[in-house]
């Protein structure tokens, strides 16, 4: 295994930790559906990037962040718990993305591909993960107050709208880091499923977040091994998701 592969594996591990952290907050904020849709917002950008033969992450990132701002505005202006409007955004991005993405690239756009990673790509991804972790740690108290009650958080002086936007952007950044090897369809799965599993196992907040990160890490490691050693494929996303779903099923059995 060469250095570029090591970079990719290391970044996948970092992504797993960020996904566990962000997923815990998303689950507690009850914005799992919105989160899932956000990851699909990358698809039209990926399609355009493939068409123009440019870097898919740039295209995916652009529509991801634009779409995130759209979701935020929908939440803020309509006050919806996002259901119907988010459903429309989801269908639109999937439709546009599937239409724009060349057939030969569609599978990779949807399910990702585990490829070598340059040092620059690794450093960029690591910087993004540091930013994600720093946001959650720095905003911990605001997030707790907002989770408990947005009204009370506002009354205490928390700018809830800005906090929500910050979290959505951090969520998008997490999706973007995982987009390369998890794809637009599965990137959010690793954010959501380990957190849902941890919720079955842990009673306290710190315990919950730590368990979510650990399960996410285990899912990535085991999924990677299953893909490369058993299925001999570089499309690792599906295996990672299957492992995390198995862990979730086990958590239901062992629920305390």
């Amino acid at each position: 295994m060469d250095t570029s592969h090591s970079y990719a594996i290391l970044l996948a591990a970092f992504f797993a930790i960020a996904a566990g952290l962000v997923g815990s907050v998303a689950l507690m904020k009850r914005m799992v559906l919105a989160s899932d849709v956000i990851s699909h917002l990358a698809l039209p950008g990926l399609g355009i990037a493939y068409l123009l033969k440019s870097n898919p992450l740039v295209g995916g990132g652009a529509t991801l962040f634009l779409g995130t701002l759209l979701v935020w505005q929908l939440q803020k202006k309509t006050g919806l718990a996002t259901d119907s409007s988010i459903g429309v955004v989801f269908a639109a991005s999937l439709g546009i993305g599937a239409l724009l993405t060349p057939n030969e690239d569609l599978l990779e756009a949807l399910f990702g591909n585990f490829e070598k990673l340059s040092l620059f790509g690794f450093l960029l991804g690591t910087a993004a993960v540091i930013l994600i972790v720093a946001f959650v740690v720095q905003m911990k108290d605001r997030l707790i107050l907002n989770l408990f009650s947005p009204d009370l958080a506002s009354a205490t002086g928390v700018n809830v709208a800005h906090l929500d936007l910050g979290f959505l952007l951090v969520f998008s950044l997490t999706v973007l880091v995982g987009l390369r090897f998890m794809g637009a369809l599965l990137s959010s799965a690793l954010i959501i499923i380990p957190a849902a599993t941890a919720r079955q196992l842990a009673g306290k907040m710190t315990e919950f977040v730590v368990v979510a990160c650990a399960l996410s890490l285990v899912s990535v490691a085991a999924g990677f091994l299953v893909s490369t050693l058993i299925f001999k494929t570089s499309t690792v996303g599906p295996s990672i998701v299957i492992v995390s779903v198995l862990l979730f099923a086990m958590s239901l059995i062992t629920k305390k």
């Binding site: 507690m28 009850r30 107050l145 408990f148 009673g203 907040m205 919950f208």
Partner: peptide, 14 residues
């Protein structure tokens, strides 16, 4: 408070 009663949040943490 529309708080999720399933939140893994202790009184002291809040």
């Amino acid at each position: 408070v529309a708080a999720d009663r399933q939140l893994p949040l202790r009184v002291t943490e809040l």
